[in-house]
Simulated assay, not measured.
Amino acid sequence: MTAHYQPPFHMSADIVQLVADISEQLGRMAAIAEGADQGLRLRRLHRIRTIQGSLAIEGNTLSEAQITAILDGKRVLAPAKDIREARNAIQAYEQFPTWQPASERDLLQAHRTLMAGLIADAGSYRSGNVGVMNADVVVHMAPPASRVPPLMADLLTWLATTKQHPLIASSVFHYEFEFIHPFSDGNGRMGRLWQTLILSQWQPLLAQLPIESMVHAYQDDYYQALNLSNQKSEATPFIEFMLSVIAQTIRTEAEEMTPQATPQATPQVDALLKVLANATKALNRQELQQLLNLKDRESFRQRYLRPALAAGLLEMTRPEQPNSPLQQYRLSKLGQQQARKG
């Protein structure tokens, strides 16, 4: 790289259209958010989804319920490494507003926070050479360790001086960061964290959206976009992918926040709510199936239980242990409201 390095990419028609679409959607979402009366709850939910999604991409097994429990200071039965990763991520997002995207000091501090207790060189650039593996195949050999400091310095200088739209600049940075692979571990979660940081300084609303959870839903496409950009030696395919993910995330969140889009329960969910509304205590799965006269366990989970949980209409009595044999369910406040309407 030179002092005037310009990361290679071109403005495809898809990129131009996606930037316009996202900007329009953000305007609509900002108007919806102003009238939302559950902003704190939504921000907390989005933060949990963001952490769970980003860590899951790296193989972390914790569920949203378990991360919620950790956030609340509750005990969670899970691998110690997974719990440490979640606690680190929670701490990182608490420091999020204090970081500047073009600051190398802040970048290293963020990595130190994310990877504390997980690797020996947390907060420092790698000292050895690394390759990105797909099963047993090396799909990308990162630049030599000796080149990492100057490459990162040039990338951060570009980020500080570029006139590109933040949607594009953040995606370019994310791709270039993954190409350089500056750390011995934690590069994926750092790249996603830093893109969100860049975007949040352009539009604060984007700090609240669970983009990482959407990327997790399209994990194979995420890695395919990285590999395609590597093959083409330019960031364009990755920019298109990330912008499409951001656009879909905003569209989904706006629909959920729109007043008329409050949960419209299916007949199956309505029946489940009615059973719990008439109960005097929390009930387990077997009790619920019996009261609903259902014999097929998987059908009950797919058509009744999971939709009700996803809509926030039910609560688990053991959220830190979602698969516990002692798990029971009760109506949430939203579920109580829905049951009264029914």
Rank of each mutant, 00 (worst) to 15 (best):
M1P: 15
T2N: 14
Y5C: 09
Q6N: 05
Q17L: 15
L26C: 13
Q38E: 12
L42M: 12
L42E: 10
T50C: 01
I57V: 14
S63K: 08
T68R: 13
L71S: 14
G73V: 01
R75N: 11
L77Y: 00
A78W: 01
E85A: 08
Y93E: 10
R105Y: 03
D106L: 10
A122M: 01
G123P: 05
S124V: 06
S127K: 14
G128V: 10
V132H: 03
N134V: 06
V138Q: 07
V148E: 05
P150N: 11
M152P: 10
L155Y: 10
T162E: 07
H165V: 03
P166L: 10
L167F: 14
H181L: 02
S184N: 05
G186Q: 01
W194D: 01
I198W: 09
S200C: 04
Q208F: 12
S213T: 11
A217Q: 15
Y223P: 01
N227T: 12
N227V: 07
Q231T: 07
K232G: 04
F238C: 10
F238W: 09
F241E: 03
S244H: 10
T249M: 13
R251H: 11
R251A: 13
E253K: 15
A265V: 10
Q268K: 13
L273K: 06
K274Q: 15
A279F: 09
A279L: 11
A282C: 02
Q289V: 08
Q290I: 07
Q290V: 08
L294T: 00
L294M: 10
Q302Y: 01
Y304T: 04
L309M: 15
K333S: 11
